[in-house]
Amino acid sequence: MQLNHLFTLGALLLPAFAAPSEVIEERDPMTRQGKSHQKPVDTKYFHEPGGNDELGHYDIRYFKESVSYEERGDTLHHLIRSYLTVFREKNIETWVAHGTLLGWWWNGKIMPWDWDLDTQVSASTLTWLGENLNMTFHNYNWTNEDGTEGQREFLLDVNPNSAERVRGDGMNVIDARWIDVRNGLFIDITGLSETNPSMQPGIWSCKNFHRYRTRDLYPLRETVFEGVPALVPYSFDKILTEEYSARALTKTSHEGHHWVPEQKEWVRQGNLHSRKPHVPRSLQTEENPKSGLGNLLRVL
């Protein structure tokens, strides 16, 4: 596998100053006198083609059409593998979070009903990304089992509002994205920071009100996710139960999928009685499948 950092696309950077708000004039039908008001400013940086569970998970700049279940699984598989590999090669600390962490807990893989992926970085790492790797494209190359080769391109885009570490109007809770430029599917990257170190030392939070103690995050644990080295928080079980409840670690049916212990896989319920059910690449059973816990190697 070879990953090459290509170039910085300066042309896509936001202008230093936003354009003035559009002024709209209205006339009162009774007095025929004009009055004007400002059109609300769109403060959101990342935009999606829609707001539902499906269309809300594409970057609008690269969206063409909704992808199939199979293509979605394949895209997410290569998204996370490329992201984790590039960050590790560049010695950038990052770890899997939220639903992606829950998928790791079950079997070290992406849950098949997920539309996007989540990772976290520290605020200092986020600042470094913005200063050094913002708007950079990365080539990801791999060799398939049959000897054929594949290549895809990904964009790392850091939200210019990421330096603001409070929620604000809630339009920019996502600090950065790793985007597949073929179809617009992405990884959401959020930064964690001690927003009130004098009153709440050791409490890390993102803009979406997720809070963690330093001892629950660090030291990060070395593991494997989707077949490549990855990091997870130290107290991953506590973090998962606080965010999703303990039932999320035992519930075996969800979103039209059922957990099959013999395969250590989530399988679409319509495929349960098929002799050879189709499973996306990101969910294909390994020769000796292991759970995320089984992949845990050591504490850094």
Rank of each mutant, 00 (worst) to 15 (best):
G202L: 11
I174G: 04
F46N: 01
S274A: 12
F137A: 10
Y244Q: 15
F186R: 00
R268P: 01
L293Q: 15
L12W: 08
N52A: 08
M1W: 01
E48M: 15
D188V: 09
N107M: 11
H77M: 04
A19C: 02
D175K: 06
H254G: 00
G51Y: 12
L156W: 08
V158F: 02
Y212N: 12
N271E: 08
T214I: 10
G191A: 12
E48C: 12
I80T: 07
M135T: 08
V173K: 10
T127Y: 13
T223H: 03
V260W: 01
L3C: 15
E153H: 08
E93K: 06
R268D: 02
V121N: 02
L12P: 00
E153R: 15
S291C: 07
G168L: 01
L79Y: 07
N52T: 07
E226S: 07
E262S: 15
D114M: 09
V260N: 02
N196S: 06
H47S: 13
I60N: 09
T31Q: 10
Y140W: 15
V41Q: 08
G150N: 06
T31C: 11
S162P: 05
P49Q: 09
E243Y: 05
E287T: 12
Q151T: 15
V224R: 13
A248L: 06
R165D: 00
Y62C: 05
S274N: 10
D59T: 03
I179M: 13
Q269Y: 03
R298K: 13
L129Y: 13
R298E: 06
E242H: 01
N196I: 03
Q120K: 15
I60R: 14
G227I: 11
N288L: 14
Y58Q: 02
C206R: 10
R182M: 05
P197K: 00
G34Y: 05
D53L: 14
E149L: 08
Q120R: 15
D157W: 01
M30V: 05
T31P: 05
A16Y: 02
F63M: 12
R88Y: 08
G150F: 01
M30N: 08
D180I: 09
P197Q: 03
D216Y: 02
H57W: 02
H254L: 15
D180W: 06
W104T: 04
W128S: 11
